[in-house]
Design a protein around this nucleic acid. Structure first.
Lengths: 204, 204
DNA sequence: AAATATACTGAACACGTGTTCAGTTTTGAG
DNA sequence: CTCAAAACTGAACACGTGTTCAGTATATTT
């Protein structure tokens, strides 16, 4: 049989694992299945990845890296464009990689991914906060606690991903935009020039 | 050994299972562990619940029922009070039953709970939509598509639960309220009397 | 061609799981 | 007390898992 060499095999294993984890989740993805799909034997997997967790962890790391690379350039855009781009990125990602994202939610408390997750969360919140700050400087957004607001926004976005995964927003871009229209309701809270920028109805 | 009778045993099993599922998740909760904690033998579990999934499903059903019973009375309150009460209910629940909720997120796509989940989601969204409608009638909220907005609100609340589970909002009520202050930003989008009620910045 | 390094194999191991069921113990009515 | 119904037991079964490692095949160097 032909050989792929160290680098080639690593790649095959990762690809096979990504597909399988997405299709059947962490627990139901066995090393054996990964081996079969990668066209390698069980032992070979362990030549490249010490154990199942390590393999999964590597996959997760790459996924987060890819997503960050996708959203990072938004920093340069105009605040409103950046924000809408961010929302689109999140929803697109949830649509295109639904299975994988669903799996990540499932395995949300795997000990091994906590540090990766924390770093990712922090960087995303930082990005949002930066967008907000820029918006305030440019007098597009009203004054606010950017870090706290970014945090809330971030988790609302994650909530919308859950919605997408539940199939509540429909699959096509059209349906998604339709469903998101009410979120201008959300944005209006950010837009300046429609009210004063005092403390607002903090105590409801 | 003393016996508990049919009803008593059922209860013991459910309690033990609830604790264990919360502590260790679905996969790592074994029937054996449930049996030990319930003070019964493995076989007895199967006398009352056909299999592991059925046991979990029953638990999940009760949990949703309990939560619904908690939020349903809010329907009678004033819209603003109802909305704030809803937010509190969600966060309180996430704090007090963190482990269990975390587990539910983890097992979010177990086939067996999909119908239960759908019914629960629908009823919660209906509740929110009703609150919004009442608010509009009472001229507290601006005009809007209540069903769509309710959907968005619901998923944002779920996102906040994720935040709570990630430990981002802190554990104490104080910390939670602090963290939620930026959400008046969210509410301001709902409040009338600060702008016209046109279509808004739909296209960003 | 021989020797060494690299890439790969897959049977075997130890363990843990959900589930079953023949058998035992307790209960309570007649 | 008698005895059937109800409650309960836990060893055994079949299966699937992550992981290991002695051994084999290919590539590269000498």
């Amino acid at each position: 049989m032909k050989r792929r060499g160290s680098a080639g095999s690593r790649k095959c294993i990762l690809e096979a694992a990504e597909q399988l984890f997405a299709e059947t989740g962490y627990a139901d993805t066995t090393i054996r299945k990964v081996a079969v799909r990668a066209g390698l034997s069980v032992g070979t997997i362990y030549l490249y990845y010490g154990n199942k967790e390590e393999l999964y962890s590597e996959l997760f790391r790459r996924q987060l890296e890819g997503f960050s690379a996708m959203t990072e350039p938004l920093r340069e855009k105009e605040p409103l464009v950046a924000l809408s781009g961010l929302i689109d990125s999140y929803l697109d990602y949830a649509v295109k990689r639904a299975k994988l994202v669903s799996m990540q939610m499932k395995e949300h408390d795997l000990e091994i991914k906590k540090p990766l997750k924390k770093a990712f969360f922090d960087s995303q919140k930082k990005l949002i906060a930066d967008i907000l700050e820029k918006g305030i400087r440019k007098k597009v957004f009203r004054k606010m606690d950017c870090r706290a607001t970014a945090s809330v926004l971030f988790y609302c976005l994650r909530g919308m991903i859950l919605a997408q995964l539940s199939g509540d927003l429909g699959d096509d871009a059209q349906g998604r935009l339709e469903a998101w229209k009410p979120c201008d309701l959300f944005l209006r809270g950010l837009l300046r020039d429609r009210r004063g920028h005092g403390e607002g109805c903090t105590k409801l």
